[in-house]
Design a protein around this nucleic acid. Structure first.
Length: 676
RNA sequence: GGCGGGGUAGCUCAGAUGGUUAGAGCGUUGGAUUCAUAACCCAAAGGUCGGCAGUUCGAUUCUGCUCCCCGCUACCA
């Protein structure tokens, strides 16, 4: 491995349109913080850079909904997000924002250099334009009827009712969300970065890092295999970094163009040496991100850097998988999350407990699950019982028997050689784990110090030997207090608040990584300040309250979801009469090959049997629905799906949770009965 | 359907470029102990490493097929 003189650590720029939750923390900020604290303890040259990403369409939509300006929205969330991170001890050297003028300038310079050197491809495409608002519409700004499920309210990129991915010109009856007007197609020019041209260089880059995590390499290689395509680096939008070219009013840089440059621009506000941290060959760049950002950090940003020239490419991109909550995906829109600002209210002063619990089940190799029960166990059985208890034992014994002064080392018990040996191995093992981004393993190793301490006390039994040999007991307690000091250093990256408390209690100022296993760290005779209990038990009712809170937010979200679709446009009786809805009976049902959602049904319509394909496979087993009476639209034009003609459509009622129910007659009715 | 990740003790997860008894924490059971937040310490029980087949002297680790979970993507209601 190459020798590096300094390390530039970035944590993903978080999107400033909402508060942050445990998923964010576990995904990249906690591991990044642990890593940085570790390097600092080793007295390495390291900077830790992150901030908020404040551009892009969702922020403008949120602003419009709330009747604010985009700047007001990002100002609010920047403050809230930064404060949450501060309170959790995420020790950024700088926490910047992409709406900063310095960021605009540096992004524009970056863009201009690529532009002047002909690194972009200009292309004119047809996009929807709102004439009354006088601007082009982003996909999310266009609503219309979904071509697939026919329901109104589909967005230009996706129909949220049926989940179909769309492009704006597929929408039926498109309307601008800005003015409600029907938009018109207009040509617009954008600048594309031809990622395909950089594919060979990117492939070489990726192949030079076989040590990257399998999840990262897997996803990147999959993209390379599919072949990279040119990607637009500019957008028609008013909110963002303006394109620094004449005649481009109303166009900004694509958020994923300017966001990664944010790391650089934020560094420039931290130190005048910023270029060294990004360009010097002996600078190592490490991006901590969640798995959703892999492509941008491993392909697009590197391609930008290659096109620009001069920038170092990332040496590591330790992307974490996702943290689930009580078995379900964390979701902001469904309010299924533990919000940091709420945790701070419910568990004041317990930041380290959450840091510990999240690190201990960090989603390093696969999605992990955060449960409140696990949180309680980690606190009660590990932090309280192992660490807190050991520290308390050491302090109480010294308080009681040695007037709070560190006793001198005298006669040993014979256990000390083994103790030294056990401790000496720990720093090297910790180094190895942390340098390889194995934070879960590292945390276990750091806790090992307290475990060793408990064992040492149990075996040496100072409370017994104090009666006949106080000096020998003093020796044991001297060793014990050294172990407390070692624990405070080894655990600092993980639970910094507790480490700080311990250092104060011990009067320990400078703490270098190398002092772990130094058994003369705390001099004899020093007066100690008992820090009190480091952790307290968390009782069942407290945990239950959190679980109830989640259940409640879930059910209230389900209620909210029952938002009743607006009544469609009035139609004439003749229109209704055109529809031939009938009762039929399912006589056969089977899963469609190669489809997750489709069932192939054979329906007896009274005259003959017909084949109807229905997207209900997720809710019904084929065997279970054979024989059921159903209603169906009988004169719908046949439509070919997956190679088979579907003759009609089964009518289903959709419940608030998305589940489906057949429309059945309330008494036995003959097949072919018409429904009016 | 395509691509990627994963299926290992009751739970949460490690691990093995193929090789003697597959690990950790928690939980469980038994023992010991009382300095300590009924905590600590010791010990034990507990796994045919998703299923089937192949390569091999030998596979849980490699290959093929197959089932299940997660993500992206396609098709689709």
């Amino acid at each position: 491995m190459a020798e590096f003189s300094r390390t530039t650590v970035t944590a993903a720029l978080i999107y400033a349109n909402g508060p942050i939750h445990i998923g964010h923390l576990a995904g990249c900020y906690l591991p990044a913080d642990i890593y940085v604290r570790f390097l600092r303890l080793q007295k390495k040259d390291v900077i830790f850079v992150s901030g908020t990403d404040e551009h892009g369409v969702p922020i403008t939509i949120k602003a419009q909904k709330e009747g604010k300006t985009p700047q007001e929205v990002v100002d609010y969330y920047y403050k809230e997000i930064k404060s949450s991170f501060d309170q959790f001890g995420i020790s950024f050297d700088i926490y910047g924002r992409t709406s900063d003028p310095v960021h605009h300038k540096i992004s524009q310079d970056f863009f201009l250099k690529l532009y002047e050197e002909g690194k972009f491809v200009e292309e004119t495409t047809m996009q929807y334009f709102d004439e009354s608002a006088n601007q082009f519409l982003a996909d999310r700004y266009i609503v219309g009827d979904c071509p697939s499920c026919k329901q109104p309210g589909a967005y230009g990129d996706q129909c949220e009712k049926c989940g179909t991915t769309l492009s704006p010109n597929e929408l039926v009856n498109p309307k601008s969300m800005l003015s409600g007007a029907s938009p018109v197609l207009k040509p617009t020019k954008n600048w594309f970065l031809p990622l395909d041209q950089w594919q060979p260089a990117l492939t070489e880059y990726i192949h030079s890092h076989p040590e990257w995590k399998p999840n990262v390499l897997g996803q990147v290689k999959s993209w390379l295999q599919d072949g990279l395509k040119p990607r637009a680096m500019t957008r028609d939008l008013n909110w963002g970094v303006p394109i620094p070219l004449l005649g481009t009013e109303g166009k900004v840089l694509y958020v994923w163009f300017d966001a990664p440059i944010g790391y650089v621009s934020m560094t420039s506000q931290l130190t005048p040496d910023w270029e060294t941290y990004w360009k010097a060959k002996d600078s190592r760049i490490v991006h901590f991100i969640g798995k959703d950002n892999i492509v941008f950090h491993c392909l697009i940003f590197p391609a930008m850097c290659l096109a620009h020239g001069g920038y170092q490419l990332a040496d590591q991109v330790p992307a974490n998988e996702f943290m689930n909550l009580e078995g379900e995906k964390i979701s902001t829109s469904r309010n299924w999350a533990v919000w940091l600002h709420e945790y701070l209210v419910d568990f004041p002063g317990k930041q380290d407990v959450l840091r510990y619990a999240l690190t201990a089940s960090s989603p390093e190799t696969k999605d992990a699950d955060f449960t409140w029960a696990d949180f309680q166990t980690k606190n009660n059985s590990e932090l309280v019982a192992i660490l807190g208890n050991f520290v308390n034992r050491a302090f109480v014994l010294i308080d009681k028997n040695f007037e709070s002064k560190v006793p001198v080392k005298a006669e040993e018990t014979g256990l000390e050689d083994e103790l030294r040996k056990a401790l000496v191995e720990i720093p090297a093992k910790l180094d190895a784990a942390l340098a390889n981004y194995k934070f879960r393993d590292a945390l276990v190793l750091a806790m090992e110090v307290a475990r060793i301490g408990n064992k040492y006390l149990a075996e040496a039994e100072p409370w017994k030997i104090i009666k006949e040999n106080p000096a020998k007991a003093g020796t044991v307690l001297n060793y014990a207090i050294q172990l407390v000091a070692h624990a405070s250093i080894a655990l600092e990256p993980f639970i910094p608040f507790t480490a700080e408390r311990l250092r104060k209690a011990l009067g320990l100022e400078d703490c270098s990584w190398l002092e772990i296993a130094n058994f003369d760290l705390i001099p004899a005779g020093k007066t100690l300040q008992n820090p009190g209990l480091l952790f307290e038990k968390i009782e069942d009712d407290v945990i239950q309250k959190q679980i109830d809170k989640l259940a409640q937010s879930k059910s209230s979200m389900e209620l909210a979801k029952k938002e009743i679709a607006p009544i469609k446009e009035t139609i004439e009786f003749d229109d209704f009469a055109k529809m031939d809805i009938r009762v039929g009976q399912i006589v056969e049902a089977s899963k469609m090959e190669k489809s997750k959602k489709l069932l192939k049904l054979t329906v007896d319509d009274g005259i003959r049997t017909r084949t109807i394909l229905s997207g209900i496979a997720e809710f019904f087993e084929p065997e279970a629905i054979v024989g059921k009476k159903i209603s169906f639209l009988a004169n719908l034009a046949p439509r070919k799906m997956m190679g088979i003609d579907s003759e009609g459509m089964i009518l289903m009622a959709e419940d608030a949770d998305g589940s489906l129910a057949f429309m059945q007659p309330s008494k036995e009715v003959w097949n072919g009965a018409t429904i009016r």
